[in-house]
Design a protein around this nucleic acid. Structure first.
Lengths: 144, 144
DNA sequence: TATAAATAGGATAAAATTATCCGAAATAAA
DNA sequence: TTTATTTCGGATAATTTTATCCTATTTATA
């Protein structure tokens, strides 16, 4: 469904958010440990998230990654997915047709549309805050 | 969503089915032309579909690929997807957790389950026949 | 039985994704 | 201003996926 890079990006964002609630910055090393991902690769993904203005980085001593309080509440999953995987998940044809729409549909166009609309709705309406709070409360987990 | 191999496999199966309606066998070359896919790679996928007993191959002169009438009606999309992509689409965690269930859910477990159940239901209830008939009638397309 | 026409399948190559390494640049604090 | 710490970013490597090529095997027909 999502690329590995995207999975790491989502989990990293959630972990950063849970720490930002407590005013704590985290390092790629710490993030990789907590989400069970390769450190250097995760660092690359963090760079991308910074460039897309989803997370914030502070360089130098006592630096690290954080997300501002108000952003945690407004950032939705779809922003992270778009930043890393692009919007192929929204636009692409289920069977890879170059052109696939109502006027020229692939064999599963309608059936796929329903599912993808559901996915899109979910991604657009799930906030980082909601996911981070569930991690904090122990209702969900980032690894194993 | 699906791998390229799986997209080709689905489209090839549909094309073979439309021809089998008319008792016509088709070659990998013809299939690749009609579904706009790389020929040799498509041939490999056809081999896999044969092994999984989804399509039938007749070797030698006047040979080719076909699907028996009764199978066209009973084969569902999920059989093709499972044959090529395995069942990760059914079992895998949306965020790649090694273990992810009700007792130990990833942050998007419930939300993903709903979407995946929808996808599963669609794949299990869409027959090759239905898709092939829509291609024959010109209601849907296999390429461009 | 010889021949032509097809699929089967192994070996390889190309491309994309995932992953690692290391030095440069930035920054807070001593 | 120096030092320790930390992100940034380029180069490279490993792995997986996608794609190609060539030969072997099978089979219907002449």
């Amino acid at each position: 469904m999502f690329s590995k890079a995207c999975e790491y990006g989502i989990k990293a964002s959630i972990f950063i958010a849970t720490n930002s609630f407590e005013g704590k910055r985290v390092s790629p090393k710490e993030i990789a440990m907590e989400i069970d991902s390769p450190q250097a690769f995760t660092a690359k993904i963090l760079q991308a998230l910074v460039k897309h203005d989803i997370i914030n980085s502070i360089k130098g001593a006592y630096g690290g990654f954080e997300i501002s309080r108000d952003k945690i509440a407004t950032i939705k999953l779809n922003q992270i997915v778009k930043a890393i995987d692009g919007d192929s998940i929204y636009n692409g044809c289920g069977l890879g047709l170059h052109k696939c729409d109502e006027a020229h549909p692939c064999p599963v166009h309608d059936k796929f549309k329903a599912i993808r609309d559901g996915l899109k709705h979910m991604l657009e309406n799930t906030s980082l805050e909601e996911l981070a709070l569930n991690i904090k409360s122990g209702a969900s987990f980032l690894k194993v």
